[in-house]
Design a protein around this nucleic acid. Structure first.
Length: 840
RNA sequence: GCGAGCGUGGCGGAAUGGUAGACGCACUGGACUUAAAAUCCAGAGUCCGAUAAGGACGUGGGGGUUCAAGUCCCCCCGCUCGUACCA
């Protein structure tokens, strides 16, 4: 029988479904294991990134099940978001309709992949059954003082009359309208993540199974700095300007003060100073994306104000308004010490300000390192650490400074001026002010009767939706028309999966049993924001006494991107890979036959058309081949390249496996091992044993490509085993069954089918993971490389654990070694069972 | 700009500081076939050498530590992710 994936995949998916074997139930007799992949945005169709992510997760889920864990492996939809509104505008449909139909499509695609989800736990965040709970959570946060309203600056498109997301601003213009984007001040809701900054930072140390790079990024994002605030009094005025610095020790090198354009003092100055006003307007036009802001040329406006230096009586420092000073960080003001800070140096050079070195070095400025202080009065001769302490002490004595800790992390702005998100349950009353919606009036559902013909947020222009009565005084009032940032939904969905309780966000028992997530898997692009918000959310929920857990994810793995070669016509038009054919190392357009330029290998993206549709791949080769290729080539945490030849290779391997098992003679052969073995049999069993060890370790280490490689090696060993008698057949059958169990988490359909062909009863999905057998553990003879001066010159095969003298003697018998050893070696380095190195 | 990561044959990638290139793809030769595909067997980092033995070079570039460096340290180059309203 030929390998027919579409036939067997359907058959076994149906079987798993009928037997409901992936349904998760609380069972206190088994250790639990919660494996979760980041849920997708229902954009319309699954892409290779999803295929990769979910294949990784499914491997873990099935592997842990085989190891005897009670596995929870759910899937759902991150269903609110901007693309649904864009689609609604472009195709005059409703965001909900578009989203739900996408969910249908994508769900059927995921089902074709044979993933071991408990679909009974499926959720969509745009469903009121889901978002009603987060309205309650927000109210809890609000009542606990964790949510507040403050003014914020947004991108405003004057033509569309709408707020633009950063990604909708292209070169300072609205992506649809092309209008120059304005900055507009608006009030929005914020959550006090900064209250938890210290704890979020400290607890990173306890995230033992998170990648170091993610932890480093989060630490840097939180950005704790120890420093000082110093208050400078402004000459001829009662005002002060308070600055923050991490380097109070360089105070004697201060040559100017710089304040943010959004600083209250800047605004005050601009009232009576048109040039200052012009400068602030210039700054407002600058992009507020961090990357643009930092890259922009440093520029400043010299105000008429000066402050006096606290320790240098006759020195006055000019106050500048400078575009590179961020209002959100520290106090929004600094003192500039050009000699020891790159940005200050650039600024001072541009405006010809004094540069006074205060730390001794070899005169290369700016110098950011440590050293002995000079030109610094009472700090002279001290190193940085001492000088920081003393300078703060002296500032304190003067009553103008103190030790201060600052965090770079800002409070989380959760307001979005959009329709397709969870409504924020607040009512504005002209007499009572902002009033939380009473809990018995939840949920506040989105209206369906909307249209996007009117500009701006449909909730604002809706004729009735926002009109309501004040819960306190019953007078006419209006609802908050902002909706939540979609990171709100993704900050707790993993907890909701533990139990789709209709009345509570999560039942205590289910939460306590399943949480935290044991293995979380997703793209590295979420390293900071999503993961940090989720960590914050757990803390906030604990703060309002909903739960008692602070870290949602025990182990984290981040996957790389799926990349593919790009193709362009000579006229610079992108082509899909299936429009291109290769002949003699040259690429041609499949229809026009014109030559095609093969571009760089890049992340698959629709805009560059270098995408391969998973649906097509599954149709051609089946889900198992797609899954196997996803696992076999690259380690999960690195980028991988999709290649046609790679998928072909996987397809060929599964065919080989299929054919091999199909022609295996199993009638009257049992898989009980003989009592004694031939040399060949022993070698094969040894290979099996190493393979079990290696596959287990590689899966535990998340090096699935190595697990695949060793399974392939095992298969090569089994299939090349010569059959001389029935004992050989038994050994082969024994090995093949173990191989099928090992490969099952990767390619579950073919594994089930072959399991059945071998006359096995029951599902392979329910079989236990194989264990190693000590009697086949190690080889007794090993190879030892012999080096001369660190260069490998010979290899000898010796008895294991041979002592050093014997080893040296044997090594010295090698012709090639003697050739290089003219003298007696100066030194002989021997690492037992490892290496011999003669140094001459 | 800042923060983080990555860089190994023609390609994807293996390698507790101890034989660089496991496993696979592509390639070459052979078997089978009327032929092709598929399949099977063999070969293979580059260069020198005879298709051998053996040698030289070789993990983005430059320097260093070490008996020994892909691996550790310093500098540089390139690419990727994030940068707070994309998800």
């Amino acid at each position: 029988m030929k390998y027919n994936p579409s036939l067997i995949e359907k058959k076994w998916q149906k079987k798993w479904n009928e037997l409901d074997i992936f349904k998760a139930k609380i069972d206190y007799n088994k250790p639990k294991y919660y494996v979760l992949e980041m849920f997708p945005y229902p954009s319309g169709a699954i892409h290779m990134g999803h295929v990769r992510n979910y294949t990784l997760g499914d491997l873990v889920a099935r592997y842990k099940k085989a190891q005897g864990f009670n596995v929870l492996h759910p899937m759902g939809w991150d269903a609110f978001g901007l693309p649904a509104e864009n689609a609604a505008i472009e195709n005059s449909t409703l965001p909900s309709k578009w989203t739900y139909s996408n969910i249908e499509i994508m769900k059927s695609q995921l089902k074709q992949m044979g993933l071991s989800y408990d679909w009974d736990r499926e959720l969509a965040t745009c469903n009121p059954d889901y978002y009603k709970f987060e309205q309650k959570m927000f109210l809890d946060f609000y009542k606990a003082g964790l949510a507040y309203k403050k003014e914020t600056v947004v991108n405003w498109d004057p033509i569309e009359q709408t707020v633009l997301a950063n990604e909708q601003v292209v070169d300072g213009r609205g992506w649809r309208s092309g209008a120059e984007v304005e900055k507009k001040k608006m009030k929005g809701w914020f959550l006090k993540i900064s209250d938890f900054a210290e704890d979020l930072l400290n607890e990173i140390d306890n995230l033992k199974e998170w990648p170091d790079r993610v932890k480093t990024m989060q630490r840097n994002w939180i950005g704790k700095s120890n420093g000082a605030t110093i208050s400078f009094s402004i000459n001829h005025s009662d005002d002060n300007v308070e600055i923050f610095t991490t380097r109070p020790d360089t105070i004697f090198g201060a040559t100017f003060i710089a304040i943010s354009p959004q600083h209250p003092l800047s605004l005050k100055i601009a009232k009576n100073d048109n040039k200052a006003k012009d400068f602030l307007e210039f700054c407002e036009k600058q992009s507020n994306k961090a990357k643009d802001l930092e890259k922009a040329d440093k520029s400043g406006y010299k105000t008429n104000l000066t402050v006096s230096h606290p320790f240098k009586k006759d020195v006055n420092l000019i106050v500048y308004i400078a575009n590179f000073i961020l209002m959100d960080y520290g106090t929004g003001a600094i003192f500039g010490c050009p000699a020891h800070d790159q940005r200050d140096y650039d600024f001072a050079s541009k405006y010809s300000l004094d540069i006074i070195p205060v730390i001794k070095n070899n005169n290369v400025l700016p110098f950011m390192g440590d050293g002995l202080h000079i030109n610094s009065d009472f700090l002279d001769g001290l190193n940085t650490k001492e000088a920081i302490d003393i300078s703060i002490r002296e500032l304190q004595k003067l009553g103008i400074g103190k030790k201060t800790v600052t965090y770079r992390i800002r409070d989380w702005g959760v307001s979005r001026q959009r329709y397709w998100g969870c409504p924020i349950p607040i009512i504005f009353c002209s007499s009572c002010g902002e009033v939380p919606v009473p809990e018995d009036q939840l949920p506040i559902c989105l209206p369906d009767d909307i249209n996007f013909d009117t500009k701006g947020n449909p909730l604002v222009s809706h004729p009735t939706w926002k009109n309501t009565k004040c819960p306190k005084c019953n007078r006419n009032a209006v609802r908050e028309t902002d909706t939540f940032d979609t990171f709100f939904e993704s900050s707790w969905y993993f907890a909701r999966f533990t139990d789709l309780n209709p009345t509570k966000a999560f039942s205590d028992e289910a939460f306590r049993y399943w949480m935290p997530v044991d293995q979380y898997i997703g793209g590295v692009e979420h390293a900071v924001m999503h993961l940090l918000y989720s960590r914050f959310f757990m803390r906030a929920l604990k703060f309002v006494k909903t739960i008692d857990l602070i870290e949602p994810f025990n182990s984290l793995q981040t996957q790389g991107m799926v990349c593919h070669q790009t193709f362009k016509t000579k006229k610079e038009k992108w082509l899909f890979p299936n429009q291109v054919t290769k002949e003699n190392n040259t690429f041609f357009h499949i229809n026009t036959k014109e030559e095609v330029i093969a571009g760089r290998i890049e992340k698959m993206s629709k805009s560059k058309k270098n995408v391969v549709d998973p649906q097509q791949i599954i149709k051609t080769y089946g889900a198992d081949t797609a899954r196997f290729f996803m696992l076999s080539d690259s380690p999960p945490n690195r980028d991988m390249e999709w290649s046609d030849s790679g998928i072909e290779g996987s397809w060929r391997f599964l065919n080989k496996l299929w054919n091999f098992v199909n022609i295996l003679e199993v009638e009257n052969i049992h898989d009980k091992l003989p009592t004694s073995f031939s040399k060949q049999q022993k070698e094969l069993l040894r290979t099996l044993n190493t393979t079990i060890k290696e596959v287990t370790k590689s899966i535990d280490d998340f090096h699935f490509n190595i697990a695949v490689a060793s399974i392939r090696s095992l298969f090569n060993a089994i299939s090349s085993h010569k059959i001389l008698n029935n004992d050989d057949k038994s050994v082969i059958l024994y090995n093949t069954k173990k191989l099928l169990i090992l490969i099952n988490p990767m390619v579950p359909h073919i594994a089930e089918a072959l399991w059945e062909i071998l006359n096995e009863n029951g599902l392979i999905a329910n079989k236990s993971w194989p264990i190693t057998d000590r009697s086949f553990e190690e080889k007794d003879r090993i190879k030892i490389p012999i080096q001369v001066n660190g260069k490998m010159r010979a290899i000898i095969k010796v008895q294991k654990d041979l002592d050093n003298d014997e080893l040296e003697k044997l090594a010295l018998k090698e012709k090639n070694i003697l050739k290089f050893l003219n003298d007696t070696p100066k030194k002989v380095i021997i690492v037992p069972n490892r290496i011999v190195n003669f140094v001459i």
